[in-house]
Design a protein around this nucleic acid. Sequence first.
DNA 1: CAAATACAGGACGTCACGTCTCGTATTTAT
DNA 2: ATAAATACGAGACGTGACGTCCTGTATTTG
Lengths: 191, 191
Amino acid sequence: MSGPGRPRSETARRAVLRAALEIVEESGYSALTMEGIARRASVSKQTVYRWWPSKAAIVLEALQDGAAKLAPAPDAGDLAVDLRAFLRRSVLGARGRTARLLVALMAEAQLDRAFARSFRNGFLAQRRAVMVEFLDRARARGEIGADVDLELVAELFFGALWYRLLAASGPLDRAFADEMTDALLRLLAPG
Amino acid sequence: MSGPGRPRSETARRAVLRAALEIVEESGYSALTMEGIARRASVSKQTVYRWWPSKAAIVLEALQDGAAKLAPAPDAGDLAVDLRAFLRRSVLGARGRTARLLVALMAEAQLDRAFARSFRNGFLAQRRAVMVEFLDRARARGEIGADVDLELVAELFFGALWYRLLAASGPLDRAFADEMTDALLRLLAPG
DNA sequence: CAAATACAGGACGTCACGTCTCGTATTTAT
DNA sequence: ATAAATACGAGACGTGACGTCCTGTATTTG
């Protein structure tokens, strides 16, 4: 299938992702440059530009490479249980190093139209979809009112989560996740 | 009061703010540079750096200069009426040119720690405070349950608003504002 | 062996950064 | 009046990242 020519170096790819993460950790995302990544990874700038259009694309790939795969929706068959588990996992998973990467990517998405597309459609929308999916299952079981807008509920949660990330308005802890859970359950309740 | 020396030129100040807004409108925030602002405003770079630490600070001042003053909280004496009015005004006021400025500032706040402080404390926190303030009045009238966390409710709204701004997950229209109003009223209802 | 593709290394012109110097203008205090 | 203080426009300066290009080498397919 793959035509002639030297194949892409997986070593170089990993070196680039690793270098990017290290630079962000040591000096912050604003200190991250394509040139610095290439230098640290001992890789040609040509190679970096050949495979990634921007440093944001590198960081996004590094983030997804680290997370292995998108965390699946919980499915215990009970809305309250599933929602609480999902929100806790989402909130607690958006702290520390991950938080630093996430806010940098969101920032970059506001400044780079091309990256914005891939970030919004290939990352943000997928996380909302996972949530809407298990809410939909709960609705099929009659646990959710038929008139509730599930997309809006998902936006309420991710909005609050991102707001805490971006505005630093409060901690991303279990208490926050549980408060959100209780609030959303009130909105979802039928009748 | 003001000591000796030539006073600050209000003409230069206005020229800088105007130039910044024009550049953002014509070429987008990512094309905005301190150098370009100075050039367009026919002002020395020295002058720009003397009064503003970053282009984000310039844009923030231009935004607040344009809005004249912080919109006050509504006070019709009825929670549903006030909340609906406030959310509509907030949502509809975050579109068009203002939206472009807001997302750029939020992005910059993620990349510039000094600007982040002034933006979060001097802008974001104040908008939440206006909302919490009139919610508090409604609570004093018994329209809101004593156990409801008003700060969290404010975060839910502004979170969703900012999420739509940053993630472009849906339109910022009256329908969105009214859906949010209904949702928040359910959360605020006593009992 | 030839064509195709990837690689590391590095040169290149462009641009914005932030600081600095210059000569000039405008104000207050003596 | 004059001195001190501060602001102004203009622009030079070194630094560093940008994104592209070139060179020589390596690795794969047909």
